[in-house]
Design a protein around this nucleic acid. Structure first.
Length: 491
RNA sequence: CGGGGCGUAGCGUAGCCCGGUCAUCGCGCCACAUUUGGGAUGUGGAGGUCGCAAGUUCGAAUCUUGCCGCACAGACCA
């Protein structure tokens, strides 16, 4: 990798961190690798969560909650699973503190050692499948369609706000089915839900695909994913849906009697998205002036800023704004009236741009005279004067337009950054200069995939669903290949 | 864990080579005044064990040693 690219990456990384902090989404915390999600960031997460939750429920899922702690022995029951997670687990070994007998502070009480250590969940497959064993006996108990909203802990070596923190919030769905086909259908259904959410709500185009064996979830038969492209040309896995086969059912001995009175192991799926989506949102749309949030998810869709001299003017504006607010609320538009006099107008303009509020309305004496207000849209920064009559409707239409334009812009960028490479040199040069997805032939072996990763730092992001079959030669080995796969450097 | 870099006010920093009015500057914070259609200006003010410890010295932010912590690139990864 060239020096220039390293420095570009560093700048982008700096820009990303600053933006998260300045916009008030989150902050570093006292604990290594953990972050504080601030009220603004959490409001954004709540909007995402509520919409996803709705989509899960519409497809027959229910929420439940399982313990944070997992007995160590559970984790080791599925061989690939433990292999995948063992290196990043936080472990609880004691349950009590005591005053330090040597004076001063507080120490762990050595007599309070747990007989079996508890793992802070890095994901909940094991504790959930241990529970499902008691829930499932007959085909009549199936399917089990459960989701949980929870926090998980993965002791990663390198962390990054929202994209990879030691603790993060997510949802994890865990379903059990009578047949393989039904489980596969579920896996794909959830992948579709994620893709729909990403595109229609986050305004972020994604590629649906299946992971190569190397990139597969620990314990899965197949891992499906949605892959997004960030503005710096790196890819981001934005969600995953796993077909787990009978692996966990076998590990936890979850069998059921089918209609023919035959005993069989149940078929499983798991799927999840996390607060990483917030990081994706930031990197997909923002510019140098701050965040650009898609209206459907923005905690505040419209901010109204009064411009006035003296209390008399303020009163008249207040009166006008009050009636606008009612109109907005009637259309379910999330609106904020910022009449805080301790901040100046220019400061507020810049602040709400930083926070990515899609629409800003300014109203002052000049506007009152003209029966108009000034509307500024965050995405293009265009300003225009519009009539006060039917303002809520005007804004409603504008919000839809912003949502659409935000998606279109991200899609153009993404589409322009999928390039084909037919030789190794071409491949490397594309990665080093443009980044983005590189569509290339691969001989299908894990060794080659590993070697490509080693040499280029690029991984196979996915094999797109409904991928076009095309004869070709592997970019590294020249061995025959039947289709192109998508490579990228990734977060 | 090993490789180069860094620890000075809430944040960002100057000073360190060459020890001595040296704790600098900007942002932010507080008060008052004038301001308010794109991050205001002026005046005044508060805020520091210079990462920790030991050593050298008449004297250490500055030199030496040890420790601690941090960010960066690598193995891990939603």
């Amino acid at each position: 990798m060239s020096k220039e690219i390293t420095s570009r990456e560093k700048d982008y990384s700096q820009w990303y961190n600053d933006l998260i902090i300045k916009s008030g989404l989150a902050d570093y915390s006292a604990v290594r690798g953990c972050m504080v999600i601030k009220p603004y960031g959490f409001a954004l997460w709540e909007n995402m969560r509520d919409q996803l939750d709705k989509m899960f429920k519409e497809t027959g899922h229910q929420n439940a909650y399982f313990p944070l702690f997992i007995p160590k022995s559970f984790l080791s029951k599925e061989a690939a699973h433990v292999e995948g997670f063992a290196k990043e687990c936080a472990v609880v070994t004691h349950y009590r503190l005591m005053n330090d007998p040597n004076g001063g502070g507080i120490v762990v009480d050595p007599s309070a050692k747990l007989e079996e250590e508890l793992i802070v969940r890095p994901t909940s497959e094991t504790i959930i499948w241990n529970t499902y064993k008691t829930w499932i006996q007959s085909y009549r108990d199936l399917p089990v369609l459960v989701n949980q909203w929870a926090n998980v802990v993965r002791w990663e070596m390198r962390t990054r706000l929202f994209l990879r923190t030691t603790e993060f919030l997510w949802q994890e769905g865990h379903t059990a089915h009578a047949t393989s086909q039904e489980a596969i259908d579920e896996t794909l259904q959830m992948l579709d839900i994620y893709a729909t959410f990403a595109e229609e709500w986050m305004a972020m185009p994604v590629i649906k695909g299946v992971k190569s064996p190397n990139e597969r979830f620990a314990g899965a038969e197949d891992t499906y994913c949605i892959e997004a492209l960030m503005q710096d040309g790196k890819a981001l896995q934005a969600g995953t849906s796993h077909f787990l086969g009978q692996n966990f059912a076998k590990a936890f001995d979850v069998q059921f009697t089918d209609k023919e009175n035959k005993l069989d192991y149940v078929w499983a799926t798991s799927w999840g998205v996390s607060t990483r989506l917030i990081g994706a949102l930031v990197m997909a749309h923002s510019d140098d002036d701050g965040l650009i949030l898609p209206p459907k998810l923005a905690p505040v869709q419209v901010v109204i800023v009064p411009i006035f001299k003296g209390e008399d003017q303020k009163k008249i504006i207040d009166e006008k704004v009050k009636s606008f607010m009612e109109d907005f609320k009637a259309l379910n538009i999330r609106v904020k009236y910022d009449d805080d006099d301790s901040r100046r107008t220019g400061w507020k303009f810049a602040e709400y741009e930083m926070k990515g509020v899609p629409v800003r309305i300014a109203i002052g004496a000049r506007d009152l005279e003209n029966n108009a207000v000034e509307i500024a849209r965050r995405d293009t920064k265009e300003k225009s004067s519009v009539s006060m009559d039917g303002l809520a409707n005007t804004v409603s239409v504008l919000l839809n337009d912003i949502q659409q334009k935000t998606y279109d812009k991200a899609k153009d960028f993404r589409d322009n950054n999928i390039r084909k490479a037919d030789t190794w040199d071409e491949f490397m040069s594309l990665l080093d200069t443009d980044g983005g997805f590189v569509s290339a032939h691969w001989d299908g072996t894990a060794e080659t995939e590993e070697a490509i990763k080693e040499k280029s730092k690029a991984t196979i992001r996915c094999i797109p669903l409904n991928n076009k079959k095309e004869e070709g030669a592997c970019i590294l080995t020249g061995a025959p290949s039947k289709e192109r796969v998508l490579f990228a450097r990734a977060y």
